[in-house]
Simulated assay, not measured.
Amino acid sequence: MAKLSEIDTAAIPGGRGHLRLLQRDDEFSIRIAGKPGELMNTRLHGSEDALAELACARVAAHPAVRVLVGGLGMGFTLAAALKSLPAQAEVVVAELVPGVVEWNRGPLGAAAGYPINDPRCRIIVDDVVAVLEQHPGAFDAIMLDVDNGPEGLTRKDNDRLYNAKGLQTIQEALRPEGVVAVWSAGMDPAFSERLKRAGLCVEEHTVRAHRPGKGARHTIWLGW
Rank of each mutant, 00 (worst) to 15 (best):
V97G: 10
L51D: 03
S192W: 01
A94W: 10
K3T: 01
H62P: 01
D157W: 05
D188A: 14
V202W: 13
Q134M: 14
S84Y: 10
V207H: 14
L4Y: 14
Q23L: 02
K214C: 03
L195K: 11
R16C: 12
S84C: 11
V91N: 02
H210W: 12
V100M: 09
L72D: 01
Q168R: 14
N117H: 10
I32Q: 05
M40P: 01
G178F: 11
A209R: 14
K165F: 09
A110D: 09
L153D: 02
N163M: 07
G137P: 02
N158C: 15
G137L: 10
D126G: 06
R194V: 02
F28N: 02
H45G: 04
A2S: 03
H45W: 11
L195H: 12
R43S: 08
M1I: 01
L195R: 10
V97Q: 11
V180R: 09
R66M: 04
R31C: 15
L54F: 13
G75V: 01
L68P: 08
H62A: 15
A130T: 06
D188I: 02
G166S: 12
F28E: 01
G46D: 07
E203K: 15
L72S: 00
L195Q: 09
V91W: 05
L222K: 07
D147S: 15
G99M: 09
G70N: 08
M74A: 14
G106L: 04
G199E: 09
N148A: 13
K83Q: 14
N41T: 14
P150I: 01
I116N: 02
E90H: 14
L21I: 04
E48Q: 12
R58D: 04
V67L: 08
A10D: 05
G106Q: 07
A50L: 10
V182D: 06
R105W: 00
D25T: 00
G109T: 00
P176F: 13
A164Y: 06
F76I: 02
F28L: 03
I30L: 07
L72A: 00
E177H: 15
V92I: 12
N158H: 15
V179F: 08
R211H: 10
E193G: 15
G199N: 13
G71R: 08
N148T: 07
I7H: 00
I32F: 07
A89P: 08
A138P: 08
R208M: 12
A216T: 03
V207Q: 13
I30E: 00
L4P: 11
L108G: 02
R208V: 05
E48P: 03
P13L: 08
L68R: 12
E53N: 07
L161K: 07
A33D: 10
V182G: 08
V146C: 11
E6R: 14
E6S: 09
I12W: 05
L51K: 05
V125F: 03
G109P: 05
A61F: 06
